[in-house]
């Protein structure tokens, strides 16, 4: 089985504004997310990082009284147009959240959940998908003898790798990470970071992170946000090592939090 590799996968955001109950949560976001690179979004708590990430797969619409304006172009198509099929957008975006949420079913069923809801019924193919993506997430060896036991019995680090495999199994083009290592122990975090380094050759990755160390270690491109705005963006060297803006400097030096 080959992974869907799409070098044309690109995201361009133009004049994106988000209002939560009249509160202006994201202000005039303009950014091009580089393809097949790992982009880290950093900034203090409440700066809108997660809100921005939730715009990528339109999970933001699960909130009441939300208003999104502007263009969010995925491969040239504005995903906020009314005639867009939301499940197709989400299929393109694999999400890894802050803490793992294994679905209330077996390890096997967690992986096949995505392919199945999109219509895959062939048992052999599903078996193959399970093995392939569990290997892809470095989990196969640990769980191959208990594929049909509840996913809840795994350790939290294993659960997060399971969630990664589950997300990859729907063959996304983009991977979104919302502080995916913040609930993990150092070794599990390292596993995930290592995996991201490998995956960025095949996918475009957007990672929200609290950890400057993590951004320095695995990111190619960095976006710094503050109070709902993008203050500065560029390569790791530009933003983290030689920031131009005073706010970025203060954040990188640990003076705002």
């Amino acid at each position: 089985m080959s992974l869907s590799i799409n070098n044309q996968s690109n995201i361009v955001v133009e004049n994106l504004n988000v209002f939560y109950n009249q509160r202006h949560a994201l202000k005039n976001i303009n950014i091009t997310i580089p393809s097949n690179k790992l982009t880290a979004i950093i900034g203090p708590s409440g700066c809108g990082k997660t809100t921005f990430l939730k715009c990528f797969n339109r999970l933001i619409e699960n909130n009441d009284n939300i208003n999104v304006t502007g263009n969010f172009l995925v491969n040239g198509q504005n995903i906020y147009q009314p005639n867009i099929e939301i499940t197709e957008i989400r299929k393109k975006m694999g999400l890894l959240s802050q803490r793992p949420y294994p679905l209330p079913m077996s390890i096997y069923d967690n992986i096949t959940y995505g392919p199945k809801i999109h219509g895959e019924k062939n048992k052999e193919k599903l078996d193959h998908i399970v093995e392939f993506y569990l290997k892809e997430a470095n989990l196969w060896e640990e769980v191959k003898d208990r594929l049909h036991s509840p996913a809840n019995n795994l350790s939290i680090g294993q659960q997060q790798r399971l969630c990664l495999a589950r997300g990859l199994a729907v063959e996304p083009e983009f991977i979104l990470g919302d502080e995916p290592t913040s609930a993990l122990d150092p070794i599990s975090s390292k596993h995930i970071e290592q995996k991201f380094l490998e995956l960025k050759n095949k996918y475009t990755i957007v990672l929200v992170t609290h950890s400057l160390r993590q951004a320095k270690k695995i990111a190619d491109y960095v976006i710094f946000m503050y109070l709902g705005e993008i203050i500065e963006h560029g390569s790791v060297e530009e933003v983290l090592l030689n920031p131009k803006n005073q706010l970025t400097k203060d954040y990188v030096n640990g003076e705002i939090n």
């Binding site: 999400l95 679905l103 959940y113 809801i117 997300g167």
Partner: peptide
């Protein structure tokens, strides 16, 4: 039921009913 579970399922492209 934690919102995270619903979001995990939605993020895979599931419909609300799924």
């Amino acid at each position: 039921v934690s919102r995270g579970y619903k979001e995990a399922s939605l993020a895979l492209g599931a419909t609300k009913w799924q």
